[in-house]
Nucleic acid binder design. Structure first.
Lengths: 138, 138
DNA sequence: ATTTACTGTAACTATTATTGTTACAGTAAA
DNA sequence: TTTACTGTAACAATAATAGTTACAGTAAAT
């Protein structure tokens, strides 16, 4: 993992939701809050749209959530913005003649799958709404 | 994260433990099983020694575990071999004038700390022995 | 219809992390 | 005092991440 995509995905969605309905939200405005390039935001929001979490109503109004924040989990956001999310990876050049090495790699892979599963369960338990209600906006 | 260090750390320790006592184990032999360079193994085993998980008895005998496999958790191995293990990271260039952005980053950081904590609890529950007993060695 | 404002995406660059490699000083022990 | 190994510095290769420019495509306002 070790990238900022989940954090930026959350930031985009929460920001879009917190802005008053009358105001228009484009990639430029969101990118200024995040402190990145508008294209980075467009890349991410494009992915969030494909995942059914975000939509644009019209050019004027710009971005809006496609689901209620209560129904958007961190898991969905992660899967939307990060295609290749492995928690841990295993070395892949193990000596094929070493039976012990060959077997332990399988065991480690299995253990890593479990750890990833547990992480994903925790990500499924938290929604965008849970995050948003903790934000102090003044 | 997204590196193979935890996997290689586990591989080194398990390999060292599984080799019959009479045999000598040096970095060259371990690296051949893992399929990497001996220096990579020396770097890792140096870190594992500093963490009190591995030791060398003598030049002739080479590497040995410094603790029983039952008492070595995956958490200890990870912390030994991976100095900068962040599960997720947050974008750090948030616009300081955007109060919402400023606040949500704190909330996200807090959430990520929780996720990391939960992962580490799972890593603490699993020992090297748990891994080793699942390995098929024939 | 034409202009305007924006998005989506390709293509490239910059930066950084990870792993592999060479080289060699230091050390234990035969 | 030679031998066998480790620890570590220093550098190279590769790959991932993020930033940037550029532009075709599209919706909608004039």
């Amino acid at each position: 993992m070790i990238n900022t995509r989940l954090a930026i995905g959350i930031h985009i969605l929460a920001f879009v939701e917190c802005v008053p309905e009358k105001d228009s939200i484009n990639s430029e405005i969101v990118s200024e809050s995040i402190g990145t390039n508008a294209v980075v935001v467009r890349r991410m929001s494009s992915a969030l749209k494909k995942a059914g979490l975000l939509k644009s109503v019209s050019i004027k109004k710009g971005l809006m959530l496609a689901k209620k924040p209560e129904n958007i989990t961190l898991y969905e956001i992660l899967k939307a913005v990060d295609p290749s999310n492995d928690l841990f990876i295993v070395h892949q050049k193990v000596n094929p003649q070493c039976t012990y090495g060959h077997s332990i790699v399988k065991v480690i892979e299995n253990e890593f799958r479990f750890l990833q599963f547990e992480l994903e369960e925790n990500l499924k338990k938290k929604t965008l709404h849970d995050i948003m209600k903790k934000v102090v906006n003044n």
